[in-house]
């Protein structure tokens, strides 16, 4: 077993970057659950859309990273609006099982549709940064990872500020806390819900876009993440955004640490075992349950 500090730090940082991007997906899922009381199974496919937009737009824009990422986020947010207007707006807050089945159907259409159009073959996505990286002493990380983590941190800052200080953020929190009361004071529920889905989808698109150069882009990339995100949202406490974010970062680190120390094969298994035990022991989440919490 190799315990030198460089290796440990690299593991830690890699885990942190991946965890931060999981956390973007989980935060969006928590947001949608808080406002609409829906677990959106198609959420992972929104991330996949972000990844594919990134993969298709990058060559067209001469491999420049930032404009492509913006396009990916915006296109996915737009897809979120379409998703809301066509389907989610028709579901009531108490129809939990029904919402799962509807969004599962949407996820199937998107996932297998992407496989039909683009084939299941993974794509390597190249950017202006290539495989260049940042080196501090012996520790080396590719720029795409560093930027991915940075983008996630910025996005969380923006999400926090939006929920905390904007009119729209307050409206979302009000609906999450008490739907009836929010309706009585005249908060336009449908508009707020649509914005919430768009925002959550945008975060997904950002995560998908940022992950594209780090991992491979393929139709099933969303399905691999969504189940984890789903569990994270419950572990964090339904609708509790910091809880979900914290759980996601922890998951990313546990994965990389376990992967580093133990046989690589038991990495994911151990994580899922921890999840099952966590959910069974604390069905309301490790953190306090309640409305949409921002801090």
């Amino acid at each position: 077993m190799n315990l030198d500090t460089t290796y440990l730090t690299e593991l830690l940082l890699n885990g942190l970057m991946v965890g931060l991007l999981y956390a973007l997906v989980a935060a969006g899922l928590a947001l949608v659950f808080g406002v609409l009381h829906i677990i959106n199974f198609a959420h992972g496919e929104l991330m996949m859309i972000g990844g594919f937009v990134m993969a298709l737009v990058l060559p067209a824009l001469g491999l420049s990273y930032w404009p492509s990422l913006a396009v990916a986020a915006l296109a996915t947010a737009l897809a979120g609006v379409v998703l809301y207007e066509l389907f989610l707006s028709r579901l009531g807050p108490r129809e939990f099982e029904r919402s799962i089945l509807v969004t599962l159907g949407i996820s199937m259409v998107l996932l297998y549709g992407a496989q039909y159009w683009f084939s299941a073959t993974p794509r390597i996505v190249d950017t202006q940064y290539g495989f260049e990286g940042l080196e501090i002493g012996d520790i080396r990380m590719t720029w795409t990872r560093v930027i991915g983590g940075g983008v996630a941190v910025l996005a969380f800052g923006g999400l926090y500020a939006t929920l905390r200080w904007t009119q729209f953020g307050r409206a979302m929190r009000a609906i999450a806390q008490n739907r009836e009361a929010a309706a009585m004071v005249g908060i336009p529920q449908h508009r707020v819900a649509r914005h919430a889905v768009a925002l959550a989808a945008g975060l997904c698109g950002l995560a998908g876009g940022a992950l594209a150069p780090i991992q491979l882009v393929q139709p099933a990339m969303g399905q691999a993440v969504i189940f984890k995100a789903f569990a994270l949202v419950v572990i964090g406490g339904l609708g509790n955004i910091p809880g979900a974010v914290f759980a996601a970062i922890a998951l990313g680190m546990i994965e990389s640490w376990v992967g580093g120390f133990f046989d690589i094969v038991w990495q994911e298994t151990s994580v899922f075992l921890i999840m099952i035990v966590a959910v069974i022991l604390r069905p309301d989440g490790l953190f306090q349950r309640g409305g949409l919490r921002v801090g």
């Binding site: 677990i39 939990f96 099982e97 799962i100 189940f227 789903f230 569990a231 419950v234 339904l238 994911e268 298994t269 899922f272 075992l273 999840m275 099952i276 959910v279 069974i280 069905p283 309301d284």
Partner: peptide, 21 residues
């Protein structure tokens, strides 16, 4: 014994755990 939201999640994680094992 869990709530219905947690029931669905645990059932999914169980299925994935089986695949991983």
């Amino acid at each position: 014994r869990t709530r219905r939201h947690a029931f669905v999640v645990v059932s999914i994680t169980f299925a994935l755990l089986c695949a991983l094992v």
